[in-house]
């Protein structure tokens, strides 16, 4: 398995599986509630300047600058 990378390194159109969420408990829990928990499949739709639009399980989220750096993923081949 490839090494995990921060979600922000993924280019639009690529996808990966979340392996770890770094950050305070509060942030982690919120991300889990919204479906961004370990093992979730995430697809990067658009990228702004450090912010991302991602899709998880059919839901679309905007992740502000910094948030995408806290989520570690294994990129799909």
């Amino acid at each position: 398995m490839a090494a995990s990378v921060p979600l922000m390194m993924l280019r639009p159109g690529s996808s990966g599986r979340i392996c770890d969420v770094r950050g305070c408990r509060c942030t982690c829990r919120r991300l889990s509630d919204m479906g961004l928990c370990p093992n979730a499949q995430v697809e990067v739709m658009e990228e702004g300047h450090g912010s991302l639009i991602v899709k998880v399980n059919g839901s679309r989220y905007a992740l502000g600058r910094g948030m995408a750096a806290k989520i570690m993923v294994n990129e799909d081949a």
Binding site: Y61, A62, G66
Partner: peptide, 12 residues
């Protein structure tokens, strides 16, 4: 301090 990053759902 620094602004905190956010997450927000984008509806269809």
């Amino acid at each position: 301090g620094e602004p905190t990053p956010f997450i927000m759902e984008l509806p269809c």
